[in-house]
Amino acid sequence: MTSPLQQKLKITGPTAVTANRLADGVVVWLTAAHGWSTHIGEAAVATTSEAALALLNAAHADENHAVGAYAARVAVEDGRASPANLRERIRVDGPTIAFDAAA
């Protein structure tokens, strides 16, 4: 029993699917080969809702490698995805808190 497959998804721009790796929680992105990469630039980018839904369902079917998958809007430059909003920027670059301040 894995998560029930999602039936509907409506996207508003280029979209990639992201999750956290099961064993260590590291942020990962679903690639075109339906594997997982730690680099957003290697993410498969969907431009139609159907394609994004297919990616998302592929991700949900792979819960034993990555968990909490969701579709995230991304920016695309030279065919490579990059974060389109603050949340994804933080997931890619880490907290915005200065770490020497924390250390």
Binding site: N20, G25, V26, V67, G68, R87, I90, R91, G94, P95
Partner: peptide, 13 residues
Amino acid sequence: RLMNGVYLQLHAY
């Protein structure tokens, strides 16, 4: 895992 205090956050557990 939650019952043992383990969450999944943005970057890690």
